[in-house]
């Protein structure tokens, strides 16, 4: 029984005077308890909108959500605001990209954590303070007792992200959703946060949805990876399968176009041509067709379905042949 089951999730943004915009379309995936699932894509791929929809954080007006999101037998999409808030506080934790704007600047860090503990775990003020210090200690903040009385602006980005993770973990959630949690941070700090996340996940058996544009992060962290393009999942595979034998031309192209630390100087990159804005509508065919080296007439006329193929899910008429992919992955 999956912890979280997303079925056919769709998000359409409607604004007066503009054409409705489909940000997410037919996204389905599930997360098992303790599993780490990656959602990878570039800007406009719909990965962040997906996470906001999961958390019920999209504006009620203007965003039309369809499909279903089942969390432990509860349908999240039909919950009332109050029920959802309660659920969100208790079972679902989240960590965002910008730790400064996610924290209240005029309230001490201690109060921001104890608030959650008092509300969702029914602790007394005193108990909550002890627990808060423990949480801060667990996420690696030095001298946690003192930190409780400080304000977010007194801390660096990395430390703030740790505070945010501590808040997310305060209620021992079963699922943690991390939306680009390290994008605003430096590499060495990113490494600290990622290792913290992966330790916490394995120690507490929390499931994690990792949303990122960085394939490197996914390669080290996730059991299962969903690659999104233009609002749909185009490939889903176990981590080794995906990186060593990518089949979708987009995934394949991405992997070939990023410079790698372990490739010698001068190793040529093979870029994907055009830019993210060169999409066609999924209704017309494959959104990636204008940029795809494998595109044929059928790609421009028939939308591909997400189908099981060789132990993975793939949305492509002309996937990359297996032989090519193996040599690439071996790098």
């Amino acid at each position: 029984m999956a912890l979280l089951d997303v079925r056919d999730l769709g998000v359409v943004f409607k604004r007066k005077g503009t054409r409705p915009f489909t940000a997410v379309d037919g996204v389905s995936f599930s997360v098992e308890p303790g599993q780490t699932v990656g959602l990878v894509g570039e800007s406009g791929s719909g990965k962040s909108v997906t996470s906001l929809a999961l958390m019920g954080l999209l504006p009620k007006r203007g965003a039309e959500i369809s499909g279903s999101v089942t969390f432990e037998d509860t349908e999240l999409l039909t919950l009332s605001d109050k029920q959802l808030r309660d659920r969100r506080g208790r079972d679902l934790g989240m960590v965002f990209q910008d730790p400064l704007s996610s924290l209240n600047p005029v309230i001490t860090i201690g109060l921001q954590i104890t608030e959650v503990l008092e509300r969702h775990r029914g602790m007394s003020r005193k108990e909550a303070r002890v627990e808060a210090a423990e949480l801060l200690d667990r996420v690696g903040l030095p001298d946690p007792q003192r930190r409780l009385d400080e304000y977010p602006h007194q801390h660096s980005g990395g430390m703030r992200q740790r505070v945010l993770i501590a808040i997310a973990l305060a209620c021992r959630p079963k699922l943690l959703i991390a939306d680009e949690p390290t994008t605003a941070l430096d590499v060495t700090i990113q490494a600290q946060i990622l290792s913290l996340l992966s330790d916490l996940v394995s120690e507490t058996d929390t499931a994690l949805i990792m949303i990122t544009h960085d394939l490197g992060i996914v390669a080290g962290l996730c059991d299962n990876v969903n690659v999104m393009y233009g609002g749909r999942i185009v490939e889903r595979a176990a981590r080794h399968d995906l990186f060593e034998r990518s089949r979708h031309p987009y995934t394949h192209g991405l992997l070939q176009s990023i410079p790698r630390l372990n490739a010698p100087r001068g190793e040529p990159l093979t870029p994907i041509r055009g830019s993210v804005s060169d999409n066609i509508e999924w209704e017309q065919g494959c959104a990636f067709a204008p940029r795809c080296p494998n595109a044929t007439d059928v790609c421009w006329s028939e939308p591909p379905e997400l189908k099981a193929d060789d132990g993975r899910m793939l949305r492509c008429h002309n996937p990359v042949a297996l032989g090519d992919a193996v040599t690439e992955g071996a790098l």
Partner: peptide, 13 residues
């Protein structure tokens, strides 16, 4: 710094 850079290759990672 070098050890902190994530590499998009699970085997390396």
């Amino acid at each position: 710094l070098l050890s902190a850079v994530p590499v998009p290759d699970p085997t390396v990672e």
